[in-house]
């Protein structure tokens, strides 16, 4: 059984005041997420990430398509007992304390009272807010609010957690803390679906990622495979600029600083390059395979189609 199966969900918004035209925010999207998987939903601003999550949560209604969550129709209230959601830049009732807020949400998710009393202090401890339980949320910093946000998303112990840009707007320490919390969810065997445009976070956490741009799915796959799709280059640095004319046909890129040369070659021609450098008596300084980062994949798949054609 899939944890999440999106079958052609699409959303268009009417734009214009007098003559309304439909502007697609999300093209028909097809996507499946396995149980236990940590899935990254990548895309630049305005790509349609939040739109997808709002559709899945029943906050807006699709123009077309449907979805199954944990084997049931996505609007089924039974499904909603099993999922947690952290909206982007969340705001919470600021007249409540953290404990009151979590108690309210747990009640709405059907957690019995005695269970709530046990679970909430432990949860506050887990997200690093053990001392702030009685404090009103209006006095919380952004990082603390984000941690309360994660806490409310998991207070009812859901199987599947949706997080919309959980790391945005946080400092490096805050980001690391959230990252560790997500890692913890993953270790517990929960399915995590999170959207982000911070690639290193997706890279560190996700089993698979999907890249979306302008409401359209541009690529989907295992992080390792996507990375290796771009990992076929080597950086070579040597002393002896005099050797350059003999090898220049092999190089993809080169930069000369004084007598030192920094060059990039494809993995296939690296051996030949080393051979020739030895013949030219150049002095090798370093040889580094360039691991393609998710970044390269992301950039390659979010450039506009029109630009690619031109």
């Amino acid at each position: 059984m899939w944890a999440l199966e999106i079958n052609g969900l699409a959303k268009s918004y009417p734009v214009g005041f007098l003559r309304k035209t439909l502007k697609p925010a999300l093209q028909p999207l097809h996507l499946t997420v396995e149980e236990g998987e940590t899935f990254g939903f990548l895309g630049p601003n305005g790509a349609g990430k939040t739109t997808t999550l709002k559709l899945l949560m029943g906050i807006i209604f699709p123009t077309a398509g449907t979805a199954q969550i944990l084997g049931r129709h996505f609007h089924d209230p039974e499904v909603k007992k099993q999922i947690g959601f952290l909206p982007e830049q969340p705001y919470f009732y600021d007249y409540l304390s953290a404990t009151e807020l979590l108690d309210y949400y747990a009640q709405l998710s059907g957690v019995p009272a005695d269970e709530r009393r046990k679970r909430i202090p432990a949860l506050l401890e887990r997200v690093g807010l053990a001392d702030a339980g009685k404090k009103q949320l209006r006095k919380f910093s952004k990082g603390m609010l984000q941690r309360v946000g994660i806490a409310q998303a998991i207070v009812h112990d859901p199987k599947l957690v949706f997080l919309d840009e959980p790391m945005s707007g946080l400092d490096p320490i805050g980001r690391r803390e959230i990252r560790e919390l997500i890692q913890g969810l993953k270790d517990e065997g929960k399915t995590v679906f999170f959207s982000t445009h911070i690639l290193s976070d997706a890279e560190a956490l996700c089993d698979r990622v999907a890249v979306i741009h302008k409401g359209e799915l541009r690529g989907i796959g295992v992080v390792e495979a996507l990375k290796s799709a771009t990992a076929d280059q080597v950086e070579v640095i040597w002393h002896g600029a005099g050797a350059l004319p003999a090898v220049s046909s092999l190089l993809k890129e080169s930069r000369v600083t004084g007598d030192m040369v920094r060059a990039i070659v494809s993995t296939g021609s690296a051996d030949l390059l080393l051979e020739k450098l030895r013949q030219q008596h150049a002095q090798l300084i370093s040889f580094t395979p360039l691991h393609g980062a998710l970044e390269d994949y992301f950039l390659a798949h979010t450039s506009d189609r029109e630009e690619v054609k031109a």
Partner: peptide, 14 residues
């Protein structure tokens, strides 16, 4: 307006 409904409607609340 404040989007607190997001965290309500994602729960089993009709």
């Amino acid at each position: 307006e404040k989007k607190t409904l997001y965290t309500i409607l994602s729960r089993p609340v009709r």
